[in-house]
Each structure stands twice: as structure tokens, then as C-alpha cells.
Simulated scan of single mutants.
Amino acid sequence: MKIGFIGAGKVAKGFGIYLKESGLELSGFYSRTLESAQEAAKLTNSKSLALEEVAKNSTVVFITTPDDLIEKVCNEVAEQVGFSQGQTIAHMSGSLSSEQLKMAKQQGCNTFSLHPLQSFADPVASAEKLKDTFFAWEGKGNKKDISNILTVLGNNNTEISPEDKSLYHSAACIASNYLVTLLDSAIKLLEDTGIDRELSCEIISNLATGTVSNISNLDTTQALTGPIVRGDVSTISSHLDAYEKKGLLEIKNIYALMGLKTLDIAAKRGLSPEKIDHIKKILKEENFNE
């Protein structure tokens, strides 16, 4: 089995390094920017190839372009070069399903999306992190090639339905992108107390790291701490009052909205219905104004 890439960005380079280090054979990389393909080939000890060479000489072709170009590139290759019946064509987008590859499917290919749940910055560092990364995949056709790749890699993985791809990706956005936004709000509050931003970032990062570790070991229900799970009404009220006095209405709204959702977890921990109703009333009262 030979694996080729159309597109030689950070994802292709990082995944290519990981495949090569795991003992899988690469046919090579094609990119509209020759320099990118050559760099990827150098990093993986493979080849920089013409588009037709990748398409014709690869058992599995990963289209690793930006998301909004995946379908367009697939169609162009299908029309200009042609895929081979029984070939496996895949992309690595987190949000898009294998439906983006329907023209390859029409030419008798197996079509899949395979997504590693991690961010890619530096290709070499990303390849190292891939060893502990979860993969989600879905698609149509013979699963043999994708299954073989995942078996060799040994990563934890799950097949999902194409219809659930957006839900899957939104979970990643909340856990990664929106976590940054949430922590930025906490950092801003520390700054407002007079702590400089660099130290605030360190403090909040350490706290969040401990929380994430607790979730991994205990699940969210047991990892939850703080005034809501304790039913500490006076502390919650004092937080809301502090935001009001400082004019931090956006953060106040975030706090209230997250608090309402946190009550669902607190209920699983045995917080009484009376306490839940009391806190819910406090959080809802005039806390979602502009």
C-alpha cells in the first residue's frame, strides 16, 4: 500500500511524518506550490510528485488542501487525471464529510474522511503528538485501506456517521477554541485585580491544566468543584455583583450562562432541587442584557 498526498501543508507534513515513522510507505506529495511539496518530501524521505503521479501511483490518496478546496480539487483530479476503481480517496477535514469526494466515488473509489483530533502547528512536533491522538473516520466503500492504516498506527479511533460530522467537529471547537475564549475571560478578571497579564496567563493555565487532568481521571461530574456544586448562593451572588460594579456585563453573561449549564452537572452530584431552583433564578435575573 502506497499513500500519497495532494496538498502539502502542515497537516499533510505532520501526518506524513507519522505514517513514515510508523513504517507505512509514501508515494509522495503534490502541491501547487512546488516548494511545499519538496519540503514535505524531505521531511518524510519521500518524493515531490506531479499531480498525475500521486493519483496514479497511490493506493490511498489524501486530499489535504484547505477545507473549502477539497471538493474542487477532488473534482479537478477526477476530470483531468482520473481516479482508479478500488482506490481509496480521503480527506482530513474535521468539519466536512466524505460527501465532498462524491466524484471520486462515482469513479469507483472508496471515499473517507479521517480526522486526527489535535491542532497542527509545527509538523515535527505534531507528528510526535499524533502518537496519542484520537482519530474519527467515516465514509463509503471498502474500509480495508483505512482500517489497515489505523491498525498499523495503533491509535484509538471510532467510526462515526457522515451526518454527525458537524456535531463531532463542534465538540472539538468548544473544547479547544472556545476554551481559549473562556480562559481569556478569566485572565481578564485577574488583570482587573491588578495582576499583570503574563502572570495571569500562567495562573489560569495551571488551574485549567489541573481541571482537565481531573476530567480525564474522574469524568466531568466528579471533577466539578466550586460554588455551584456546593450550592453556595452567597458566593454566586457576590460574583454577579462584582461584574455589575465593574461594568463587565459580557463576562457576567458568560458566567451566568455557564452557571446555568453547570447546574445540570451539579444535579448529578446531588445538589437539591431547591438549591438548583434558587441558583437558577439568580443566574437568570437580568443577566443576559447587552
Results as ranks from 00 to 15, higher is better:
192 D>L: 15
193 T>I: 06
193 T>R: 13
194 G>D: 05
195 I>R: 05
196 D>I: 10
200 S>A: 09
202 E>W: 11
202 E>Y: 13
202 E>C: 06
205 S>N: 14
209 T>I: 04
209 T>E: 14
209 T>G: 03
211 T>W: 05
212 V>P: 00
213 S>H: 13
217 N>D: 14
218 L>E: 11
218 L>V: 02
218 L>C: 03
219 D>N: 13
220 T>P: 11
220 T>R: 02
222 Q>G: 01
222 Q>I: 06
222 Q>S: 15
223 A>C: 01
224 L>T: 02
227 P>M: 00
228 I>M: 09
230 R>C: 07
230 R>F: 04
232 D>T: 12
232 D>L: 11
232 D>F: 06
233 V>Q: 11
235 T>C: 05
237 S>P: 00
240 L>G: 10
241 D>N: 15
241 D>V: 10
243 Y>T: 11
244 E>H: 12
244 E>A: 12
244 E>R: 15
245 K>T: 09
245 K>N: 07
249 L>P: 03
250 E>A: 15
250 E>T: 14
252 K>H: 07
255 Y>L: 06
255 Y>A: 05
257 L>Q: 08
259 G>N: 06
260 L>T: 10
263 L>F: 02
266 A>E: 05
266 A>L: 08
267 A>C: 11
267 A>P: 03
268 K>S: 05
269 R>P: 00
269 R>S: 13
270 G>S: 08
271 L>W: 02
271 L>S: 04
272 S>L: 10
272 S>E: 10
273 P>Y: 00
275 K>F: 02
275 K>D: 08
277 D>R: 13
278 H>S: 14
279 I>Q: 02
279 I>R: 02
280 K>T: 14
